[in-house]
């Protein structure tokens, strides 16, 4: 199975890269852009064939390494 882990800075944590991207978009003329936040997407190929267990496994990986719980939140999506 494939797991997609999306890691984002928690709400309230300053995201200077998102801010810089927002500024650049405004400079390009995209006047309607509000807040921009930047994160990471990590694709995992898993040997596990059960979707629920694959999700558990990916969540454990996110807690232990892929995300830093002090500053980041994550969500896991399982693809068959």
């Amino acid at each position: 199975m494939k797991a997609i882990v999306t890691v984002m800075l928690k709400t309230g944590v300053l995201d200077p890269q998102g801010k810089a991207i927002g500024h650049a978009l405004h400079n390009l003329g995209f006047a309607g852009v509000g807040e921009v936040r930047m994160g990471k997407v990590i694709e995992l190929e898993l040997a596990e064939t059960d979707a629920a267990r694959a999700r558990q496994e990916a969540e454990e990986m996110a807690r232990k390494l892929l995300a830093n719980p002090v500053i980041e939140s994550f969500k896991v999506e399982i693809l068959a």
């Binding site: 200077p16 890269q17 810089a20 830093n68 002090v70 500053i71």
Partner: peptide, 17 residues
């Protein structure tokens, strides 16, 4: 040390990038 949990907190990208 912060990533290992031996010290609290985290170090983010510098505010001015």
């Amino acid at each position: 040390l912060t990533e290992a949990g031996l010290l609290p907190g985290a170090l983010l990208r510098n505010a001015g990038l």
